[in-house]
């Protein structure tokens, strides 16, 4: 292990680090929005939209992000839709993540016990009131663990962006290895860089899970 090589590579890794961070952030926020919308369509059983959501979720959850990115980046231009690598990456991440997030939210809403819903109904609440005051608040807190797992998963998935030449962390490392053949050093920095993002985030999310656990307290 040559520390000097590591030191010299740090500015480049810093750029990759930033790239990974902002792509992840945009992808996760987008995925949450798409996921929430989808799970609301399912919760309120909106005709047609509900079925479309199921198809979308199954399709994106059961195909690799790699293939989704290849389709967006290489196949879509053939059909006349050309997008930059970054756009493709973000779209891919948002829709992959959206499918997982939708499942996460839906799992939370489904987890609210029927007796809670019954007791709301027995008080004369409308479907909207049941959703607003009982199912959503409790469902969100139930879905936090799975949303948290999805967030970590999506950040790690950004490493696949390297195949469409987005200069994020993994791509930076692979480039450097290709240029200087120092795989030990660059892979070491790569692992550390991901750990710097993921370990604190993971701890933060665990703390958040504990904070919002009232939904599972029974009562």
């Amino acid at each position: 292990m040559d520390w000097q090589i590591i030191q010299q590579s740090l500015p480049q890794f810093a750029k990759g680090f930033q790239e990974t961070l902002w792509l992840s952030f945009v992808g996760i926020v987008g995925a949450m929005v798409v996921g929430l919308c989808c799970s609301l369509l399912q919760y309120f059983k909106v005709p047609v939209a509900k079925q479309l959501v199921s198809v979308y979720v199954e399709l994106f959850r059961n195909t690799p992000l790699l293939i989704q990115l290849f389709s967006l980046y290489y196949a879509f231009p053939v059909m006349g839709l050309k997008m930059s690598a970054v756009t493709c990456g973000i779209i891919g991440l948002v829709f992959l993540g959206g499918a997982y997030m939708a499942e996460g939210f839906t799992g939370g809403f489904d987890g609210v016990s029927q007796t809670q819903i019954d007791s709301g109904k027995a008080l004369g609440m409308s479907n909207w009131q049941l959703a607003r005051y009982i199912v959503f608040p409790q469902g969100f807190s139930l879905s936090v663990p799975s949303l948290a797992a999805n967030i970590i998963f999506l950040i790690k998935e950004t490493s696949i962006f390297s195949v469409i030449a987005i200069p994020e962390l993994t791509n930076t490392a692979l480039d450097l290895i290709g240029l200087y053949y120092r795989s030990n050093e660059y892979l070491f920095v790569l692992v550390i860089a991901y750990a710097i993002i993921l370990i604190p985030l993971s701890l933060l999310l665990t703390w958040l899970e504990k904070r919002v656990r009232y939904g599972t307290f029974g009562n």
């Binding site: 809670q116 019954d118 709301g120 027995a122 004369g124 009982i134 409790q138």
Partner: peptide
């Protein structure tokens, strides 16, 4: 129209089911 009727018919369950939040 059960939503209207239930306002006049209270119910208490075995599992209490207070809203925990």
């Amino acid at each position: 129209n059960w939503q209207q009727l239930r306002q006049k018919i209270g119910m208490v369950f075995q599992s209490y089911d207070l809203f925990p939040n």
